[in-house]
């Protein structure tokens, strides 16, 4: 399959990148790992006139804890993310999500920023960022701005990133004592899209009650979705079986799945309920809240 013709640019700096986007308003697309965009171009569902390749722009691949955040450069490859010792030791939710993105070959090229701003509801990292209360740093010629992950997704394939902007960094609040997070998804074997996925992030107070919680849902709505009622139902309570079950029920109601080859609405809601309970249990274990 051959994509439509396009002009290719390989800028050497972020300034040059933003300048190129400005010169081609609405006609240029940023190319990161290309693992979602190129298949869409081959199907001619995407026909950008100009591709602006980020691979030679320095300073977009990093993972570090700084100023209370885990900061991830947008061009960091997914394979790098899930193999990073810091991620494996302190952010197991990200390793879990990274490991279920496509396959290792795709992950060798696919980037964190691409997974976060492609805008397919089946992408796995958005739910993690929503659950953990993360932020996106979006850069334009006017400088960087920060958007909460829960506000970032506008519609399917539509995010807060404007035509003359680039997602440059994604941040999560730094993991602290009493915090635990996890990601689980159900997919048919063979690398199919998810039936559903759930990310959960819990912070427990010294008495073992939930002080903060966040839940994000994959593939059961027009975008990745927060499940705020389910998350709020946990606050002030111990993460015991009764409360996790209640949160699971609420999350299944907050999901807005569509019927497709992967299941009917009722089935997908049931999957969300079970995954929510299971992922909360894992997050609570990691937070140290379940004996």
């Amino acid at each position: 399959m051959i994509p439509a013709s396009f002009g290719y640019r390989a800028p050497k700096s972020l300034e040059e990148t933003l300048d190129l986007l400005h010169q081609h308003p609405g006609e240029a697309r940023v190319l990161a790992g290309g693992q979602s965009l190129i298949p869409l171009m081959k199907l001619r569902l995407a026909q950008p006139k100009v591709l602006v390749d980020l691979q030679h722009v320095p300073g977009l691949s990093y993972l570090r804890e700084e100023e209370g955040f885990l900061k991830v450069g947008a061009f960091t490859r997914v394979g790098t993310l899930l193999e990073d010792p810091l991620v494996q030791a302190r952010y197991p939710m990200l390793a879990e999500a990274g490991k279920v993105i496509a396959d290792p070959l795709v992950r060798n090229l696919g980037t964190v920023g691409g997974n976060l701003c492609h805008g397919d509801p089946g992408n796995d990292l958005p739910a993690c960022w929503i659950a953990a209360g993360g932020e996106m740093v979006i850069t334009s010629a006017r400088g960087p701005r920060t958007v909460a992950a829960s506000e970032f997704y506008r519609d399917t394939f539509v995010t807060a990133v404007g035509p003359e902007e680039v997602l440059t960094e994604a941040r999560l609040p730094m993991a602290r004592a009493g915090h635990g997070a996890a990601y689980l998804k159900l997919q048919r074997p063979g690398g199919d899209y998810s039936v559903a996925g759930v990310a959960a992030s819990l912070t427990l107070d010294p008495k073992g009650r939930v002080a903060r919680s966040g839940i994000g849902l994959t593939a059961v709505g027009p975008t990745a979705l927060p499940a705020p009622r389910a998350a709020a139902s946990l606050v002030g309570h111990p993460p015991d079986a009764v409360h996790l079950a209640e949160a699971g029920k609420l999350a299944s109601q907050e999901a807005v799945p569509v019927p497709d080859l992967r299941g009917e609405v009722e089935y997908k809601r049931a999957v969300v309920e079970v995954l929510t309970e299971q992922v909360l249990e894992r997050a609570a274990d990691r937070a140290g809240g379940r004996a």
């Binding site: 290719y8 290309g34 190129i38 390749d53 394979g79 070959l105």
Partner: peptide, 13 residues
């Protein structure tokens, strides 16, 4: 050195 799917990479990359 890293294995990738060459149907999903442009030669210019």
């Amino acid at each position: 050195g890293r294995p990738v799917k060459s149907c999903t990479v442009f030669a210019v990359q």
